[in-house]
Amino acid sequence: MAEASLLLCRRLTRRFGGIAALTDLDLEVASGAIHSIIGPNGAGKTTVFNCITQNLSPTSGEVWFRSDRIDGLTPDRVAAAGISRTYQNIRLFRNITAIENLLVGMHLHVHSHWWGAVLGTPHTKREEARAHAEALKLLHFIDLAGRGDLLARNLAYGEQRRLEIGRALATRPKLLLLDEPTAGMNPHETSRMMAFIQRVRAEFDITILLIEHQMRVVMGMSDRVTVLDHGAKIAEGTPPEVQGDPAVIEAYLGVKSAAPTAARDHAASLLGAAASER
């Protein structure tokens, strides 16, 4: 296992009943990278995340994280090991405030006992104050300063997205998994979100594994791209390598090799346009 890789999936497979959502996936995420997984709807992208965080246990295969095997652990231990995630359809704790969402994210790093809280020990108070200060900083970073006392469900859509990322960051992850962070956003919001993600990497010095549905989004900022289709990897490489790959074009546009070249050209130009935006 390469020294520089942070996460390694080996022959990862997940079946639901008779249907394979993921087949023999090998995935290696280099430390410090922004690595994207793309693919059409139903390609099994979210299943990869679920299998990494152990929300689903893989049917077979291995998941290694920082020289430890993590498949078979419970999700809270995976989080403790240093992996945190967001969800495609935002899953905040809707009935508590934004700052409390962040504080829940810091659960692993607040060291207090329940009886300490009941007795109000100085240690507990110190821990709470520290956590609180950190939560405020995070709140600021995700640009929600002044909105922290709102219930999460009352935040605007973009704010909810950022809060969810902030909550994931609160666990102090080494690896951050983002599941379609730009879903439901217009192009302007999308580019802001992309800038935000790059800032997250720079600021927190972490590795990011990103799922995207739109290829255009990831080409501009990914170090490496993995393309999934029907639960299997069909291509992998740097963005330029991937977007030239005929298999990728075929998967995205359903173009058979015998298809009119016009369509293929169109697809290539779409992909190319994204790259040139960089």
């Binding site: 095997r69 078979g72 652990l73 090991a81």
Partner: peptide, 22 residues
Amino acid sequence: MSAGPLAIPSVAARRGAARMSA
């Protein structure tokens, strides 16, 4: 709740316990 951080050196060392929890 747990006192210490759970990031003890090796996760693998606790694998057995995780597989067959209390």
